[in-house]
Amino acid sequence: METKLHTFLNSNLLNKYLVGEASYEEAKEVEYYIENFPEAAKAYERLQYNLEIIAKAGAVDVPKNVLSNILKELDEPNETKVIQLVQQKKTPWYSIAASAAAILFAVTSFLLFQKNQNLLDENNVVVEEIFDLRSDIDNNNAKLDELSRELNKLNDPDARKYVINGNDRAKDLKTVAYINPVEKTSMIDVITLPQLPEDQHYEIWAELQDKMVNLGILDESERKLKPIPYMEDALALSIKIGNKGDANNTTDTEVAEISLKDKE
Rank of each mutant, 00 (worst) to 15 (best):
Q84P: 01
A100I: 00
Q88Y: 14
E79W: 05
L74S: 08
P77D: 01
T80I: 10
L71S: 06
T91V: 15
T80K: 09
L74P: 00
K72I: 01
V82I: 13
T91Y: 11
A106K: 02
I103Q: 06
S68K: 04
V86M: 14
A101T: 01
V82T: 09
Q88H: 15
Y94A: 08
V86S: 14
A100W: 02
T80G: 10
P77V: 03
K72M: 05
A98R: 00
I83W: 01
Q88F: 15
Y94C: 06
L74G: 02
W93E: 08
T91S: 13
E73G: 04
I96Q: 01
V82M: 10
Q88I: 14
Q88V: 14
E79L: 07
S68V: 08
F105W: 03
S99F: 13
Q87N: 14
K89E: 13
P92Y: 09
Q87C: 12
E76Y: 09
L71C: 06
I103K: 05
A106W: 02
S99A: 13
K81E: 08
K90Q: 15
Q87G: 15
L74F: 11
K90L: 15
A102S: 10
A100Y: 05
Y94F: 14
D75S: 12
S68T: 09
L104N: 03
N78G: 10
V82A: 11
D75V: 06
L104S: 05
K81I: 05
E79Y: 04
T80D: 08
T91D: 11
A102P: 00
Q88P: 06
A102N: 06
V86I: 15
Q87W: 12
L104Q: 04
